[in-house]
Design a protein around this nucleic acid. Structure first.
Length: 310
DNA sequence: ATTTTCAAT
């Protein structure tokens, strides 16, 4: 059995010199029923990722659709899909006043890098683009980055949902052919419910992985739902890569100490680093400006002033 | 952790 997906390249791309993508992208092709069940499966171990995608404007039919697998060691599936969408954007006249909707059904939640690429993709669009991301299971949720990245995506307005029975069904009927009746895999509802709860927790918690700081266990603590605090923490989280490096030698003993350490670390972030955040996350910073959160951004007040946000 | 996770200890 070949563990890789069947490797026929779409005829219309047969002479396209794709590097690293030629075996993983399928445009206007349906999944086989077997592929669907192998990948959109909440029970078995799956060491590959699959993303089904569709692009539509206000009226049907889909402008572009298909699916992509990851290219082992080269590219995650999301990147392949984004590249294809970008290519479509470049080679078609997109109407500025139109509203585009991208729907993704992904077997794994996107990693930090993929989330950043999704943000970049959305940032580059002048048109209104709604992105619906339906996820079948979490990707390596032990790694804090894969949680924080979802929060960043959400702040960007991406509609994120852990797939429920209806979503699996919808994905099946949209992307599989030939197909029989949809058969949910065992325990699907149980897994879906757990996933939905997990995602809801994620939205309402600041999760900090103390393993990174030399502790053995991950500590999860909730913060209040005050929107200002929420946003401030999301900004801290978005800078987590920097914070992580800066906090290497700090050993907080409890959640309060940890919070204080994060706050202090945040305050020590340089304007240059903050500038990088501002340019990569304008929507987040806009929200900060609107809500008068600049006190949380003292270290970068200069940058905010320049942009007229405080 | 529910968890072998976009492979390859």
């Amino acid at each position: 059995m070949d563990p890789k997906p069947c490797c026929t390249i779409c005829p219309e791309y047969a002479d396209t010199p794709y590097v690293g993508l030629d075996m993983t992208l399928f445009i206007r092709k349906f999944l086989s029923e077997e592929e669907f069940h192998d990948n959109f499966n909440t029970n078995d171990l799956v060491n590959k990722a699959l993303v089904c995608f569709s692009l539509e404007d206000k009226k049907p039919p889909w402008k572009l659709w298909g699916f992509a697998y990851n290219n082992p060691g080269v590219e995650h599936a999301e990147i392949t899909v984004l590249q294809e969408l970008s290519k479509f954007w470049r080679s078609n006249c997109m109407k500025k006043d139109s509203q585009y909707k991208i729907t993704l059904y992904a077997t794994y939640s996107p990693c930090l890098n993929c989330c950043e690429e999704i943000c970049r993709f959305l940032n580059n669009k002048k048109e209104k683009v709604i992105l619906n991301l339906n996820i079948s299971r979490f990707y390596n949720f032990h790694d804090i980055d894969n949680k924080i990245s979802l929060k960043i995506l959400r702040k960007y307005g991406v509609q994120i949902k852990m797939m429920d029975l209806e979503d699996f069904k919808a994905c099946f009927y949209l992307f599989v052919d030939p197909k029989e009746q949809f058969e949910p895999c065992e325990e699907l509802n149980v897994h879906c419910e757990r996933n939905a709860i997990e995602l809801d927790h994620l939205w309402h918690e600041l999760t900090v992985d103390l393993q990174l700081l030399g502790h053995r266990h991950t500590i999860r603590f909730t913060y209040d739902h005050d929107q200002r605090y929420d946003l401030a923490l999301v900004i801290v989280e978005s800078l987590w890569g920097i914070v992580k490096r800066k906090m290497r030698n700090i050993r907080p003993n409890n959640a309060d100490e940890l919070k204080a350490a994060i706050k202090a670390t945040w305050a020590s972030i340089t304007p240059e680093q903050c500038h990088r955040l501002i340019t990569s996350m304008p929507r987040c910073i806009d929200a900060v400006g609107m809500l008068g959160l600049s006190e949380y951004l003292e270290a970068s007040g200069q940058q905010l002033e320049e942009r007229g946000l405080n």
